[in-house]
Design a protein around this nucleic acid. Sequence first.
DNA 1: CGTGGGTTTGACTATACTCAACTACGGTGG
DNA 2: CCACCGTAGTTGAGTATAGTCAAACCCACG
Lengths: 202, 202
Amino acid sequence: MPLTELEPVQSWRVTAPKGRGIYDEGQPPEAFYRVESGCVRLQVIGADGRRQILAFFLLGDVFGLDCGDCRQAAAEATVKTDLTRYPIAAVERLLGSNPAAATRLMTAACDMVHALSAHLVGMGHASAEERAMWFFEWLSGRQGAARGAPLDLPMNRRDVADFLGLAQETLSRTLTRLEERNLIGVLGPRRIVLRPPARIAA
Amino acid sequence: MPLTELEPVQSWRVTAPKGRGIYDEGQPPEAFYRVESGCVRLQVIGADGRRQILAFFLLGDVFGLDCGDCRQAAAEATVKTDLTRYPIAAVERLLGSNPAAATRLMTAACDMVHALSAHLVGMGHASAEERAMWFFEWLSGRQGAARGAPLDLPMNRRDVADFLGLAQETLSRTLTRLEERNLIGVLGPRRIVLRPPARIAA
DNA sequence: CGTGGGTTTGACTATACTCAACTACGGTGG
DNA sequence: CCACCGTAGTTGAGTATAGTCAAACCCACG
C-alpha cells in the first residue's frame, strides 16, 4: 500500500540487491525513499575506517528526507530491498501547498528524530547485554512478532555490532551469554527468539 | 533577532533559571521553542536512574518540534536561559499554508536529525579522549570561537559526561590527561581552551 | 569563616577490545 | 553428488580502558 498523502507526487519503484548503495555521504540529495520490503542501513564511515550505523529502515519507513546541501550519511540495502523513490524537489513543492502531504513529511522527519533518540538512549545503556536485548526488543516490536516467535534479522552480525557500537566479537560473545541465561535463543545467525516476557524497559 | 518566517505566529518571551524544566517526558506537546540565550539540555532518565542527554540547544536552535502524542524526552535549562515560545498548534496551521514558515519548520526538524546523527557518530568514537575532543570541537564551532580563545561551557561536568555517555569521573580524568598532553587547557570547571590546530575529524 | 555542590584524584574491578585461531555454512565447480 | 573454498560467525587468551566506590579538594556563597 503506497502512501496516499504522497500520491500527487510522481514516484518510481526501485529494487536494490543486498549491499547496494542507495546514496552516498556527501552527495547532493536527489530523492527520498520509502521501504516497501527489505532493510536499509544509514551509516557513516569514520576517518579511522570505523563504521557507525545510525539507523535501520524497515517496511514503511521513509528516509533520505535531508534538507541540507549534501547527505550526512550513506544509505545501503542490507538485503534485497524494494523502495519507492520520490524526487526531493517534491518536498519544496508540497510544503506550504499541500497540507496532508506536508504533515506527512513532517511526521516522517519526526519519526527519524524519534528513531535516532531511541538509538542514542539504547547506546547509553552501559552493558553489551542491555544493548543487545534492547536491539532485539526494538526489532521485535517493529516486526510485530509475538514473543516466543522467532525473529528474522534482515542484517548480519557486523551490521548489528556497528549499530550498537560494539566489536563484532563482543556481540557474538554477548549473544552466547544471553542464550546461556535463557534470555534469548540463537536459532541461526539470522534467527533469534526472545525467551521470557522481557524486563528491559523500552 | 527573531525568526522572520515565524512572525505571523504569536509568541512569548520566557526566561528559565538554571535547572528549570521546560517540558517533561511523557507530556503532550504544547509549544516549541527557540533559544535566545543560554543553553537547554534534552534528556531521558532511564529506569535505572541513568541519564542520557540527547542534545544541547544553543543560541538560535529550535527545539520541541515533536509530532507525536507525547514528549519523548524532557528539556531543561542548564543555565539561565531566554526562550521564545511558539504554540505547537501553529505547526499544523503553517504546514500546507505558509511555504516560508513550513520550510523553516522542516529545516528545524532536519537540523535536529543532523544534531542527533552527529552525536551518534561522536558516541561511536571508541575512546573517552576522542569523545571529549569531539565535544569541544563541536562546541567551539557552535560558539564561533577562534582556536586559542577560551571556551565557556554553559553546562557542568555531569551534563557533559551524560551527553558523552561517560562516568563523570572518567570525563574528569580524561580532561586531565588531555591537558597533560597539551591538547586542551582547563582554565576552570567551565572554561576550556583548545590548544593546537585540531586533528580530530569533525 | 563555615558549608555544600561540583570537581578531581585514588585504588580496585569489571567490561569490552585486540589479535588470532578455529568452526560452520553456502555456493561453486569438478 | 561430493569436495572444496570463501565468507560469516564463534571462541580463546591477554590487555587496555572505563566503571565503581570512596575520599579529598576547591571555590562560590551565605
